[in-house]
Design a protein around this nucleic acid. Sequence first.
DNA 1: GATGAATGAGTATTCATTCAT
DNA 2: CATGAATGAATACTCATTCAT
Lengths: 197, 197, 197, 197
Amino acid sequence: MARKDEHDKKERILDAATMEIARRGYHQTTVAVIARRAGVADGTIYLYFKNKEEILASLFGRALDRFIAEGRRKLEGLSGAEAKLRAIVELHLTLVGQDRDLAIITQVELRHSLHFLEELSRAKVGRYLGIIAEVIAEGVAGGEFRTDLDPVLAAKAVFGVLDEMATDWVLSRRNIRLEAKAPEVTALVMAMVRPVS
Amino acid sequence: MARKDEHDKKERILDAATMEIARRGYHQTTVAVIARRAGVADGTIYLYFKNKEEILASLFGRALDRFIAEGRRKLEGLSGAEAKLRAIVELHLTLVGQDRDLAIITQVELRHSLHFLEELSRAKVGRYLGIIAEVIAEGVAGGEFRTDLDPVLAAKAVFGVLDEMATDWVLSRRNIRLEAKAPEVTALVMAMVRPVS
Amino acid sequence: MARKDEHDKKERILDAATMEIARRGYHQTTVAVIARRAGVADGTIYLYFKNKEEILASLFGRALDRFIAEGRRKLEGLSGAEAKLRAIVELHLTLVGQDRDLAIITQVELRHSLHFLEELSRAKVGRYLGIIAEVIAEGVAGGEFRTDLDPVLAAKAVFGVLDEMATDWVLSRRNIRLEAKAPEVTALVMAMVRPVS
Amino acid sequence: MARKDEHDKKERILDAATMEIARRGYHQTTVAVIARRAGVADGTIYLYFKNKEEILASLFGRALDRFIAEGRRKLEGLSGAEAKLRAIVELHLTLVGQDRDLAIITQVELRHSLHFLEELSRAKVGRYLGIIAEVIAEGVAGGEFRTDLDPVLAAKAVFGVLDEMATDWVLSRRNIRLEAKAPEVTALVMAMVRPVS
DNA sequence: GATGAATGAGTATTCATTCAT
DNA sequence: CATGAATGAATACTCATTCAT
């Protein structure tokens, strides 16, 4: 029970932080505001996080862990690099499109300083890029994709396309669903890797 | 002469801001530090800029204006959408790769809040996306590119690839030149738009 | 105890502010100086007051509340408008003359802007003028005072006399006691209201 | 002509300062704002005034000089202390009531610090109090007024009444004319000094 | 005399973090 | 574990004043 409560409290803080930071931006969000929304005292935050920045880092870590876990599960059932890459595109757009608050944070607030971006997000995004690169390498090896592809560079290109779609969705306040773009985006991504016939 | 001095002083402030913000990050850079490096008094900053944020906006505006002007000039001499798109890729990587300080700012520091990104950079980036979209539309109309392309979406994808390459270059401290990647990146971009033969 | 501490701290800040503002003037007194003399941190001030101006307002509010409370108590035991008006004169000079620092603030520093004077002091001074007017009205009704008196105007005249004596005492650095003037001032005030025999 | 221009420019600055300070208050009024309204450059102000505070002092000095000059002229034609005191009351209310901007400054903004009030206004107000005291002394000597009056103290009381009427008029935004109160105020003032019959 | 660009000292306020209870 | 009162460092911006032209 104690474990559960503790877990709940940490989660509550992260949820509160997600809402507030998405609405106000990282710098405009005070620790006091997060604490109030989470229903805890200011000082309690520091029992669970070393400092304010660690809240943002945890937020992103939690999201990316879920993201990658969900991804691995989906990819396991699939065979063929093309099927997997299609699944990645669809999954990326679907998961990002599921929580606009979180998307605002990952697409905008997270990138607020070189230091932070270097230390935290890149290290974790690296894992994600690695997964995409693996799939592309598999496709290259298996003859499904162009043989002159550099899997690492191509993975960055694919990520670039997906990331831009996500950012564009966050910045345009229109109420369309991000995953609606999946077919067209998939076509563009597949065109990048497909062998010239 | 007075005109020249005034112009110089504003430029000096922008140059100083570029260096400092690239090294320390926007929030860690004080107005006093920018003033000292520019060789002016703190108050002088406010004769040329409404506030600190306007410095950042001006910085980006100045860079993008040069960027687009240079782009238009290069594109004018070219005929054919493919040639133009190749030129855009090369130009983007070359220009971003020319000034690492500026690149740090455009790829990282500029994105410090949703509000700022919405109001300023997107409005200006929109012009750039528009140019790319025009080229793609030209290619679609002329049969050089796939006819099922949505020029606006494809332009975002192209921009996403280029932007990710730039961010990756900024974050990796390796001393390679960004434009060295141009051939491979061009191949990926062209694959996205080229008709399936 | 907590209540007591909190009360004490707020009082300490007000006492510190009274001393500093009386000596330096409102604008020359920094929040840091008040905090240092009160023995608290700068930020602590803002746990008890919204801003610097609210300190000044509170200062005056506290003083006037005591002033009026003391006045009501003294007046209750008296019968007859003349006795009451004499008591008011004496009380005014005695209370103002009791604390020169506070007097400097009420007679000088408080009047530092039209806005401030309008919003704060007048609203509260109005209560005081009201009390004087009531006593005069009572005297008029009871035949103790001239029947052609307008109690509201006469109250302002009485207040004007008392206020000028206080200001004069504050500005003259001589070490006389303000209440020493009470008999002569009372004579002047009574002359204003007494019926022509 | 040069003399005239110079005079005009100084006057223009004082007029501009009167308007701006009355509306914004002394501290909210910048030298730049006064300069703009006066139609001169910021630096020009300092050719005519040592600093910002001297503008306020000059403003008041100019007004009080006119005030006293006008007063002396009116009093010269009169004989009898009572007639003179009546004239003073009427003149005070009339002149203050003539220019609300100036009245705001003399009744409120001028009192922005103990130092300022001590050094400047009191010295000049002293001259005015002296005139009133002389008239009262004349009345006492001539048997028109009560013989037990202290002319200096009585003069302060008279001034207090007049000053309070002026302040009250400035703070009440009602559109009545100040001099309308002259008869009643005169009655109160005369009651203070008239012998008990 | 007149200008107005440049100066730089000066300060209220915020807020992440701590720690006594 | 939890609290929240207290801390105090940190900083953008204003504006009276100067002085080279």
